[in-house]
Simulated scan of single mutants.
Amino acid sequence: MKFNGSIDIKQSRDKVAELFADPAYLKEYQEGFEKKELLKGDAGKEGAISKMYYRNGKHEMVLTETIISNNLPDSFEALYHHKHMDNTMKCTFTQLEDGVTRYDTEVNYTRINWVLPRLIAILFPGMYKKPAQRWLENFKNFVEKQ
């Protein structure tokens, strides 16, 4: 399952990319984010592997992020692994007119091996798209307040 998202942010591409690249700000726009822990490589660089911890009430989710490429301020691509699913996410940042940056994402779920999430992906793909779009909107609001 693949889907795209896009949002225009009233800020320079360099500033948008700077804020996007800093894991200290993840909690500002990703609900439930608790921490990011580097396991291997150089933080933010191609090949770096990190654990990302999220909590929603009593539920904890741990993702393993492997950076595929980091060409910021132009683009960033990573693989996210969870025990029940894998996905890649590619983010691109395009400078538009008058200090506006377009932030595009492409998310591709390459593995969903748990019955309920797979069924939801087939019957209700919006259940995966809505949180991704909400994070784009949250990020836009965060960046524009800086």
Rank of each mutant, 00 (worst) to 15 (best):
A24N: 13
W135I: 15
N108T: 09
G41P: 07
A78P: 01
R118H: 04
W114N: 14
L39K: 06
R13K: 13
K130G: 03
V62S: 02
K35W: 02
F142L: 03
E106Q: 15
R102H: 06
I49M: 09
P125Y: 03
M85T: 15
R118C: 02
V100K: 04
I9N: 02
L26F: 11
L39Q: 04
Y103E: 03
T110V: 15
D98C: 00
S12T: 10
S75C: 05
V16P: 00
K51H: 07
L39R: 04
G57E: 02
K145D: 00
Q133I: 13
R13Q: 14
E97M: 07
K130L: 05
I9L: 06
G41C: 08
K130M: 08
L136I: 11
K45P: 08
K15I: 10
V100W: 03
E77F: 05
N56F: 12
K90L: 15
Y53P: 00
D104S: 09
Y25L: 08
E31W: 13
W114M: 15
D86Y: 05
Y128I: 05
V115F: 10
T92V: 14
Y53M: 05
Y54N: 12
K36N: 13
T101Y: 01
G47H: 08
Y25M: 05
Q11F: 05
S50E: 12
A48R: 00
D8M: 12
G47I: 10
D22T: 01
E77P: 03
Y25A: 05
E37C: 02
L39P: 01
L39H: 02
E28Q: 07
E106D: 09
Y25W: 11
S69H: 10
K145T: 00
Y54A: 07
R111G: 06
Y54C: 08
N87T: 12
H82W: 12
K15L: 13
D8G: 07
F33K: 01
W114G: 15
M85H: 12
Y29H: 04
N56R: 15
R102Q: 11
T88F: 01
L39I: 04
S75R: 02
K51I: 02
M61K: 09
D74V: 14
D42W: 04
L116W: 06
Y54L: 13
Y29L: 03
F93Q: 05
F20R: 00
H84T: 12
K10I: 11
I122Q: 11
G126P: 06
K129C: 06
L63N: 07
A121C: 04
D22S: 01
Y53W: 05
T64S: 09
Y80P: 02
I9E: 02
T66Y: 08
N113E: 09
K129E: 11
D98G: 01
A132Y: 02
V143W: 04
N87F: 13
Y54H: 15
E46K: 12
D42P: 02
D14E: 14
